[in-house]
Design a protein around this nucleic acid. Structure first.
Length: 971
DNA sequence: CTCTCCCT
């Protein structure tokens, strides 16, 4: 039994080659090269070759070009009209906003000119074409655009971009600064002088520009770069573009830059949403650098606690949750001309809601003035394209996108008994409600047959293959109405426009990744991860960092400790290990360490991460990936009305994503810590989050936006009726919805708070006159909102010390008041955060987050607070009376999470007031081992037993008092 | 007698 089938052998530091991995080489470039893929991207014979510059230059005013110009004219007129109307409506709209645009364009042009030396004919042509819309979209210099309606000099040779290029070529040999051409000069003359900044900032921006020029080369090498024109054309012709861009295609960084000069932008911002904060921040950094601008100005980001965007910002990265929040204040997204939804395949609740709202806007109130781009790394684009089609009625036939063809990849839960019939592609759109189980079975049978059939798109092969660079992507003739052409049996297929959606598939750039699977099932994947890391480290050459996927913070920190202990034993000749954790609960500064190279030479980074690094975040330097095959996933059981986080096997597409992380910078290797059979048993894609979670927050957002019929809302995947009903009941019981099902004023306030509905309700209850404990409740709510505030003892020896240090926070009332005591103790100590936290065994990372959340909540609540101020409260001691008011406020949001004492003699056991479920006080709670009449708990978790975390003692009549009438009877 | 992925 060789340790590695690839012949590499090295004992792990713990000794013993306990496990073996079978090697399986997957190289699509060899015999596996999937036919369908080739077919998809095949260039139809009748089209003129795309790459030939002569073809277009010979016929500068082809049909297509003329139509393009007509459209651009129409656009310009429309925009002018709209802007005139808006200016009339709000005369305040200053010239300042336009100025920044112009300033930006100037900078951009300067950059282009500076970089014009060299370059092949294609690149020059591209630059030339970019310069058309560049002027087109800018308000002031529109006169120079050949497409503009107001153009008076459009045929002036002086403004001919061809001429411009010639001038640049000449100038490039000498002093670039002196090589200004007439067009740029006249443009400058037509513009108001740029606003300041003089002196140091300009030096700085020159540096930025230089750096941007250095980046330009790598930009141009991105697989998506040659498709910029295609992409722009798609969005000129359609309002919705659905795009599949594999990892490494460069879609996230380039899309904004490609669209910035488009005429339809009309000075408005382009939003790009991300499911994760790290991704949004890092993308913004990168794009700002590429464009040579300061972060927070033309390019910015907005994530919770960190907004680096301004009125100047024209490309803004934000989390989808942040966009949803913005949409509550600005339902039509007036600030944006375009919203790009990135990583749509992740199917987070936020992404799904954003897509639902965008679909409504783009065919409704924002018809004609909003562009929507959906980007996905997987073939789920087909689902999305179907979803965004304006007319999805029966008459529309979309070959290749019909349910039967797409079944193959929509069977994630097919094996599961509890599978939701809703999660099928047929359910796209609200008109179609779940099919009855009988037809579902039929569908399953059909699907099995289908698998044997050749033809169609084999998604798995497509994803699995290391993207052979295909022939150029086909742009269809935009005006041909039924441009779709597909011969599925022959494997020939391309995706152009159909109906109202443009669909584009861009290959990624991915080096081959050798994939190894465990030969036998792995029991303890932490231990095996540990051994694998050392094996890799000892047998694989430098450079090449290791990325290990685990399920949570706890595992990560434990493994880090173990690795560090053993790393000390490595001989001096061996490269050292630089172990870095990466999970969302880490503070920013800590997270960013993984993006830096190791601090010393001959040092290997070992990054231990959760699925935060599975998509979007790319850790540089990684060549080796270890995939434990598990992830923590939320599961909602509507019957019990509770959510639990369970370690579950990942899906095949997740596994492939993880594997792909090894091949970003060169050929890589991935160790999957499960057998190949186990891989084949995995669901193909992860179930969308909206089907796995408590949707009450989502429903509240829907209601707040005026979508009252939440059952028939246009979901990509409609949640179970049971889940919707549960959410509606909860919101109703909290008073967020009225008897008519419409949102109440209270509900509107709740929706605006960055909290789950019950917590939001508590906060608002605390502001009531009879409660009058808002500062205290804000503290407790903020403390409950952070993860891992009170970590377990670092070692058994320290347990006693830890308990002693925390002793002073103890309160008989329970955990809520204990948290308040903790916060008060911290506030009044006057000590430095870190020192205080270490002395009291409180996570100082979590405490930092707590401070941020509290500050945010205080801002939100400042209007609710009348007489008291936030700080004055800190000095007071927490009287029993105050504690009682705090708990009563909590009951206003948590009356449904209460339990009464269970059978006599069983100390920690309680029965939930609603549903009479058995729960146990969590051992980490102050109330553990104590018997109280009733408890209110913040969270229910199911691990070894059903546990109630964060418990406080309450009286049953408080519960009845806090509950709405229809619940009261149960108490 | 045990501790949760991401997001507002």
């Amino acid at each position: 039994m060789p340790p590695f089938a690839d012949g590499l052998t090295k004992a792990s530091p713990k000794g013993g080659n306990v496990f073996s991995l079978s090697s399986k080489k997957k190289r699509a470039s060899e015999k596996e090269k999937p036919k369908p893929l080739k077919g998809i991207l095949k260039k139809p014979a009748q089209q003129p070759p795309q790459n030939s510059p002569s073809a277009e230059e010979a016929k500068p005013l082809s049909n297509r070009e003329r139509k393009r110009q007509e459209r651009a004219k129409a656009w310009a007129a429309k925009i002018a009209e709209r802007e005139a109307a808006e200016a009339a409506a709000s005369p305040k709209k200053a010239a300042g906003e336009q100025m920044t645009d112009i300033e930006f364009l100037q900078r951009k042009r300067a950059r282009q000119e500076a970089g014009s030396g060299g370059g092949n004919a294609n690149q020059k042509k591209r630059r030339k074409e970019e310069s058309f819309p560049l002027l087109d979209g800018a308000p002031a210099p529109r006169v120079f655009s050949p497409n503009s309606t107001s153009a008076t000099e459009s045929n002036d040779p002086g403004v001919n971009p061809m001429f411009l290029n010639k001038g640049k070529e000449k100038g490039a040999t000498g002093n670039p600064g002196a090589s200004q051409n007439s067009r740029a000069d006249s443009a400058r003359a037509a513009m108001p002088p740029p606003p300041k900044p003089v002196g140091p900032p300009q030096v700085h921006s020159a540096q930025l520009r230089r750096h941007a020029l250095e980046l330009e080369k790598s930009r141009q090498k991105l697989p998506i770069y040659p498709h910029a024109d295609t992409l722009r054309q798609c969005l000129r012709d359609r309002h919705v573009l659905v795009m599949m861009g594999e990892t490494g295609s460069g879609k996230s960084t380039q899309i904004g830059q490609f669209l910035v000069d488009e005429p339809w932008r009309a000075g408005r911002c382009i939003a790009i949403t991300q499911p994760r904060k790290v991704a949004a921040v890092n993308l913004a950094r990168r794009v700002a650098a590429e464009m040579g601008v300061r972060l927070g100005e033309e390019v910015g980001y907005n994530v919770r606690f960190d907004n680096r965007s301004s009125d100047k910002t024209i490309i803004k990265f934000l989390t989808d949750g942040m966009l949803l929040q913005e949409m509550l204040a600005d339902p039509k997204l007036k600030r944006y001309s375009c919203v790009v939804v990135d990583e749509a395949h992740e199917r987070t609740v936020g992404t799904d809601l954003v897509m639902g709202f965008l679909r409504k806007l783009v065919y409704g109130e924002r018809r004609g003035s909003l562009k929507v781009v959906i980007m996905s790394a997987t073939m789920e684009v087909k689902t999305m394209a179907r979803f965004f089609e304006e007319n999805r009625g029966e008459g529309v036939i979309i070959p290749g996108l019909m349910p039967e063809a797409s079944k193959e990849e929509s069977t994630p839960e097919a094996k599961e008994e509890e599978s939701t019939p809703e999660f099928k592609e047929e359910s796209v759109g609200s008109e179609t409600r779940p099919t009855p189980p009988e037809t579902d079975k039929k569908a399953k049978r059909k699907k099995k047959k289908k698998k044997k059939n050749k033809g169609g798109i084999d998604t798995m092969k497509l994803i699995r293959s290391p993207s052979p660079i295909p022939e150029r992507i086909k742009t269809p003739e935009p005006t041909s109405a039924a441009g779709f052409e597909a011969e599925r049996s022959g494997g020939k297929m391309f995706f152009p426009y159909f109906g109202t959606v443009a669909l584009l598939i861009v290959p990624g750039r991915q080096y081959p990744v050798e994939s190894l699977h465990a030969a036998a099932p792995v029991q303890d994947y932490i231990d095996i991860s540990f051994r694998t890391v050392f094996q890799i480290h000892c047998t694989h050459p430098m450079p090449g960092d290791i990325l290990v996927f685990l399920t949570g913070q706890d595992e990560i920190e434990n493994l880090k400790k173990t690795i560090l202990e053993h790393a000390a034993a490595l001989t001096k000749e061996m490269p050292q290990m630089h172990v870095l954790p990466l999970y969302a609960a880490l503070p920013f500064a800590q997270q960013n360490k993984v993006f830096l190279p190791a601090p010393q030479k001959n040092m290997r980074k070992v990054i231990l991460c959760t699925n935060i690094a599975e998509t979007s975040v790319t850790v540089p330097g990684v060549r080796y990936v270890v995939d434990c095959g598990k992830a923590k996933l939320k599961q909602f059981r509507p019957k019990l009305g509770l959510e639990s986080l369970l370690v579950t096997p990942i899906s095949q597409s997740s596994a492939l994503q993880r594997r792909g992380r090894a091949g970003r910078e060169g050929p890589g290797k991935c160790w999957h810590l499960y057998t190949e059979d186990a891989f084949n048993e995995l669901a193909q894609v992860t179930k969308p989050e909206i089907l796995r979670t408590d949707v009450s927050n989502a429903i509240l957002i829907l209601k707040a936006r005026g979508h009252d019929d939440v059952v028939n809302f246009d979901y990509l995947s409609p949640p179970k009726l049971e889940s919707l009903q549960k959410a509606l009941e909860q919101l109703y019981s909290l008073g967020a919805l009225g008897n008519d099902g419409k949102i109440t004023p209270l509900g509107k306030k709740m929706a605006k708070l960055p909290l789950a509905p019950p917590l939001a309700r508590v906060l608002l209850a605390a502001a009531d006159k009879d409660m009058n404990c808002l500062p205290e409740v804000v503290d407790v709510v903020a403390a409950l909102s952070v993860d891992n505030l009170l970590p377990p003892p670092p070692s058994e020896e320290l347990r006693e010390q830890m308990e002693e240090a925390r002793q002073r926070f103890r309160r008989a009332e329970g955990d809520h008041i204990m948290l308040l005591e903790l916060v008060r103790s911290f506030d009044s100590s006057g000590e430095k955060l870190k020192g205080w936290c270490e002395a009291h065994f409180v996570s100082h990372y979590a405490m930092k987050t707590f401070i941020d959340i509290r500050a945010q909540l205080r801002t939100y609540c400042s209007s609710l607070l009348s007489s008291t101020t936030w700080d004055s409260a800190a000095a007071e001691t927490i009287s029993p009376d105050l504690a009682e008011r705090v708990l009563k406020a909590f009951l206003k949001g948590f009356f449904h999470q209460t339990a009464r004492a269970g059978p006599e003699g069983r100390l920690g056991e309680y029965l939930t007031v609603l549903g009479h479920q058995n729960v146990n006080v969590h051992p980490a709670s102050i109330l553990f081992g104590k018997r109280k009449e009733a408890i209110v708990y913040h969270e229910y978790v199911f691990t070894t037993k059903p546990f109630a975390r964060w418990c406080s003692a309450v009286q049953l009549d408080w519960v009845a008092e806090a509950s709405p009438g229809w619940v009261k009877g149960e108490v």
